[in-house]
Amino acid sequence: MSDITFKGEKVNLMGDRVKEGQKAPDFTVLGNDMSKKSLNDFDGVLLISVVPSLDTGVCDSQTRRFNEEAETLNAKVLTISVDLPFAQKRWCGAAGVDNVETLSDHYDLSFGKAFGVAIEELRLLARSVFVIDSNKNVTYCEYVKEVTDYPDFEAALEAASKAE
């Protein structure tokens, strides 16, 4: 069992947690057009916001917040969930979110297992935030203890603004 809970119940996370200072592990996810994307498809600083599902209140708010901040942030913001690419595209259109790139890990949980955030019991991703610098090093990671809580927005944004 991990120290992460979902609605107060401990959950098992698949994969190993990443740590600040290590090389970011590669992963394969799907874009909204069903194209495969990996870490190497992105240049520069990345802020990766991980949510269980865009169709929940906290995930919706988290993604909207990072979408607003992305306008002035010197980082590309990715939101990864296990929602289907079609649902992500629909959600972005309905929410007016266009500064964040949504990516789906539904196929094989490649990202979730690589970053240690795949919830075994639920086949969802645990709420977390990662900052990866332009050399593909992890410079910030937050594994939110209770999946239904918000991440520390200020700490994540500060880490992204300092990353090069």
Rank of each mutant, 00 (worst) to 15 (best):
C59K: 04
K89D: 14
N99K: 13
T102C: 13
D83Y: 01
F66Y: 14
Q88N: 15
N74G: 10
N67V: 04
V77G: 07
D60R: 09
D98L: 01
S81H: 07
V58G: 02
E71P: 04
A75H: 02
S61V: 04
R65D: 03
T63D: 02
A94H: 03
S81D: 06
L84I: 11
T79Y: 02
D98V: 05
Q62H: 05
S104H: 02
V58F: 04
L78R: 06
C59W: 04
R90Q: 11
E71I: 12
G96Q: 00
A95P: 00
L84H: 12
A75L: 03
A70G: 13
C59T: 11
C59S: 15
V97I: 04
R90P: 06
T79P: 02
G93N: 15
V58S: 06
W91Y: 09
K76T: 08
A95H: 00
D60A: 12
T102E: 03
G96I: 00
C92G: 11
E71F: 13
K76I: 03
S104A: 05
V97R: 00
V82G: 07
R64A: 09
N99V: 03
F66S: 05
K89M: 13
F66H: 09
Q62N: 03
E101Y: 05
L73Y: 06
Q88A: 15
L78D: 12
V97L: 00
C92L: 10
L73P: 06
V77K: 08
F86L: 14
Q88F: 12
L103S: 07
A94W: 04
L84G: 11
E101F: 09
V77N: 10
V100N: 01
W91Q: 05
G93P: 08
